[in-house]
């Protein structure tokens, strides 16, 4: 699971949960790999992100690295910034661990990189 994906996931589907965001991450395995850098794509995705959540997620698994705490102005034209964002969004992957609903504490397993957000019938 990439941190870009984590930035979008919520546990709002759970009965009784209002926001379900952001999901905490308990990472057992994290992997860093190389993904094609596409600056145009990264600058397009930035307005869709909750940057604080991204930064905190990265920090919580020890990979905030050089990521600035806030989005800079004129980021579209700053290759260096976009590269750092790209790295954290696309190249850092949680392989095994858990996602944790901030309201209910319900845990969602991540195994072999795939978060399992499936609910039991009585949870919907």
């Amino acid at each position: 699971m990439k941190l870009l994906t984590h930035n979008m996931l919520t546990s709002k589907c759970l009965k009784g949960v209002n926001v379900g965001y952001p999901l905490g991450i308990l990472a057992k395995d994290v992997k860093v790999s190389e993904v094609d850098f596409n600056p145009e794509f990264v600058s397009r995705i930035i307005p869709k992100l909750d940057w604080n959540v991204l930064w905190n997620a990265a920090d919580s698994i020890g990979h905030s690295g050089e990521l600035p705490k806030a989005v800079i102005s004129d980021y579209e034209n700053n290759q260096e910034f976009l590269k750092k964002a790209h790295h954290v969004l696309m190249e850092v992957e949680v392989i095994n661990g858990e996602l944790i609903c901030p309201e209910s504490g319900r845990k969602f397993p991540i195994s072999d990189g795939i978060p399992n957000m499936l609910l039991n019938e009585d949870e919907v």
Partner: peptide
């Protein structure tokens, strides 16, 4: 080798999820 692919296990028809 260097493309970004993720999979999420969920019910895509959930009205509180992707359908919202």
């Amino acid at each position: 080798t260097e493309s970004a692919v993720d999979v999420v296990l969920c019910d895509v028809t959930s009205s509180e999820g992707l359908g919202s």
